[in-house]
Amino acid sequence: MAALSVDSVRYSYKQVDALRGVSLQVDSGRFVALLGANGAGKTTLFSIISGLYRAHSGSVSIMGHSLESETLKALAAIGVVFQKSTLDMDLTVLQNLRYAADLQGISRKDSRQRIDSSIELHNMQSYSTRKVGALSGGQKRRVELARALLHKPSLLLLDEPTVGLDLNSRQEFVSHVKSLCHSQQTGVLWATHLMEEVTTDDQIYLLNSGNIIADGTTASLLEKYQQPDVAALFNEVNKQYTDDRNVHGEPS
């Protein structure tokens, strides 16, 4: 089943078209990477999928629920890790998680159990009673991930979640999310501009100037474009798109 289905979504900021008819799909238990340079439209697309903005046209459905007509059911099925840290720095890790559990309507008894197992699952035992403001970047990201998964969402959205992390923390975080994706059958949409976060069996969508310019598994795209790695593939596809645009003009 499709955890997320985005169909022909358009959005513009005054005169600037941020998304020009984006369509994509994320299946349950699948890790899907949305690759795009800064300004490609990733954050706008995430803001639409998470209900912060409303698409000017097109549709989004989450676990079969239309974001337009069944907003609350659709929102209940997603967990979001935003690009910027959205934790309350003055509260402890536990207090942040309790707050999230309350927002999601989880009962106190359930939330205690879920928070305990979440702390264990994400290895946060050593700092669960510390204020978030005192944690390292990697630790904060783990807390954000734990918070996003607390209500057991069917779809997890991560908007450049590893920005600001060192290489080790980044790799650790990516593999942690991938293992969760497989073990909990959660569909994951991972936006990034860091090519090393994508492996050959991942499904990828390449976003450029608000258009999806290529999609498929990494392996199939590497073969199609005859490129040795994801970084080279990214450059090649973007170059072909830019050349094509220079010849034929902006797509409508």
Binding site: S50, L75, I78, V80, S85, T86, L103, Q104, G105, R147
Partner: peptide, 11 residues
């Protein structure tokens, strides 16, 4: 700071 987004994405 972004924490408003957490509240506004609550179902």
């Amino acid at each position: 700071m972004g924490s408003m987004s957490v509240l506004l994405t609550t179902p």
